[in-house]
């Protein structure tokens, strides 16, 4: 921690012009996220945390201000350029997993690599490696419908990792999971940070935010608090597959 900022928002505002009255979802927000942080963004629904997440993930562009991602200004890029940035620098984890149905786990994990100039055997090799990293190597051929919710989210995390991005953005990653599985997923995210990855997660649960090293709270489109904390280590249930993997890989 304390290293260079990997995500920098400079006076960013986002205004939606959907109805007659413009909606200011994010107001003059500045934020720096450093490499190796596990940042939790908290806020109630409608607070602007989803807007912030979409901007950080280059799924949307700010109305005002600048956004630097890994030193590059991405705030005025075209849709195509943003797609390339997402592909290279960002990994997404969603609340509802967003795996392609009727498509095997390994093929789901391969998806980001499909949009890179990689041979099919190299894609398969890296996808299997990413699956092994989340402890699902044996489930490579399973379809999402054959996997539990926790397993599906781990496949999604593998998909976020496979392209070796600079940052993983997780939008309520535990929102659809029970508490035991939630801890598993959080342990996995902590492990990623331990391996040098930067993780930003959105949550409204304090239990989950406790696993983060920094908590930013937003309200009405503004940052109202920004606290650093000592993260609670996520210890998976002894019977959990993740725990076994962690032990096996000897992760710190």
């Amino acid at each position: 921690m304390g290293s260079a900022a990997i995500l920098t928002l400079e006076h960013v505002s986002k205004t939606y012009l959907t109805g007659e009255v413009p909606v200011r979802a994010l107001v003059d927000t500045s934020l720096e996220v450093h490499a190796g942080e596990l940042l939790a963004i908290m806020g109630s629904s409608g607070s602007g945390k989803s807007t912030l997440m979409n901007l950080l993930g280059c799924l949307d562009r700010p109305s005002e201000g600048r956004y630097l991602l890994d030193g590059r200004d991405v705030s005025r890029m075209s849709r195509s350029e943003l797609a390339v940035v997402r592909n290279r620098l960002i990994g997404f984890v969603f609340q509802s997993f967003q795996l392609l149905p009727r498509t095997s786990a390994v093929e789901n994990v391969e998806l980001p690599l499909l949009y890179r100039a990689l041979g099919s055997s190299e894609r398969r090799r890296r996808a299997l490696q990413a699956l092994a990293r989340v402890g699902l190597a044996e489930r490579a051929g399973h379809h999402p419908s054959q996997l539990s919710g926790g397993q599906q989210q781990r496949v999604a995390i593998a998909r976020a990792l496979v392209g070796e991005p600079k940052v993983v953005l997780a939008d309520e990653p535990t929102g659809n999971l029970d508490s035991v599985t939630s801890v598993e997923v959080m342990a996995l995210l902590q492990q990623l940070v331990g391996d040098g990855m930067t993780v930003v997660l959105v949550t409204h649960e304090h239990d989950i935010a406790a696993f983060a090293s920094r908590v930013v709270t937003i309200k009405d489109g503004r940052v109202v608090s920004d606290l650093r904390q000592t993260p609670v280590p996520a210890v998976p249930h002894p019977t959990s597959a993740v725990g076994g993997t962690l032990a096996a890989t000897g992760a710190p």
């Binding site: 195509s80 797609a83 997402r86 592909n87 290279r88 392609l100």
Partner: peptide, 10 residues
């Protein structure tokens, strides 16, 4: 949407 999020260009 998923494909676009993981890097598919239009």
């Amino acid at each position: 949407g998923v494909r676009m999020a993981v890097g598919a260009r239009p």
